[in-house]
């Protein structure tokens, strides 16, 4: 337990000092501000691009457009940046040998994996919260009359998908030596989820639903209860991946 806390503190210190926390926060803050802005400006931009003779008529932008931008950016660029930033979570320490020294001092390997996972979750949570807060504020400012439903639940689903993805990532990191290997395995896992999503019956249980059904939830075209199974499965899988990482890492010859 002491090792876990000390190492967690070191991890947070590391993300601050290596500017990784800064990058995450800035990227998500930029998304947070630009989401509603793009939603507002997109029709005007398209109209100004239209040449004579072609008339583009677009409906007035609404809060839904802002949230559409939010979920599009967060699930695509947002998650990609997150995974790239964290891809070296173990490989950088193992290839340099910085970890061996602390392990010989009595730091347990379980504590290493758990605190690394915790720290990634904290950084992800802070980033997505910042992004959400900014988008929310500006959306209310730009589209004060529009109402959305299930907004918090929808964002919670996205957040949980991030947790699942980070569990896959740390599991991949224990399997490989390089950060590219880690990226590759994580990528393969996401693609596998996407392929499984082709089968309609699987959709209910597939973790990826948490990152694809968000707009449906807000527009009320998807029932909240239809995601319960996916939430349960994602939690279970995250738990399994983290425990597997601990088991594998404990047996790894360093």
């Amino acid at each position: 337990m002491r090792g876990y806390l000390v190492f967690l503190k070191k991890e947070i210190f590391e993300y601050t000092k290596t500017y990784k926390l800064l990058i995450m926060l800035v990227v998500f803050a930029i998304f947070g501000i630009t989401n509603p802005l793009i939603a507002k400006l997109l029709p005007e931009i398209l109209e100004s691009l239209a040449t004579d003779g072609v008339i583009i008529t677009l409906p007035d932008p609404t809060a839904y457009d802002a949230w559409e931008q939010f979920f599009k950016n967060a699930t695509q660029m947002g998650l990609i940046v997150t995974v790239i930033i964290f891809s070296g979570v173990l490989s950088s320490e193992l290839s340099k040998g910085t970890l061996i020294n602390l392990l010989t001092k009595g730091l347990s390997r379980t504590a290493v994996i758990l605190s690394k996972y915790t720290c990634m979750v904290l950084v992800w949570t802070a980033s997505i919260a910042l992004c959400f807060g900014l988008t929310y504020g500006y959306t209310v400012y730009l589209f004060p009359k529009d109402e959305t439903s299930n907004l918090l639940f929808s964002v919670f689903c996205l957040w949980l998908f991030g947790l699942f993805l980070l569990a896959v990532l740390i599991f991949s990191a224990t399997l490989t030596k390089s950060n590219y290997g880690c990226l590759l395995i994580t990528f393969v896992a996401v693609v596998a989820c996407m392929i499984m999503d082709i089968i309609p019956a699987m959709h209910r249980y597939n973790p990826i639903s948490l990152a694809t059904d968000n707009m449906g939830l807000i527009m009320n075209s998807i029932e909240v209860s239809s995601l319960y199974s996916a939430i349960l499965i994602s939690c279970l899988l995250s738990l399994i991946f983290v425990s597997l990482s601990v088991t594998i890492f404990r047996r790894k010859q360093l």
Partner: peptide
Amino acid sequence: YGETKTNRNIGFVPDVPEFYGYM
């Protein structure tokens, strides 16, 4: 193997010591 109990009595200097460069 894998346990670190006996290491409380040991100090180890690796051949190429590597530490966190930002500290």
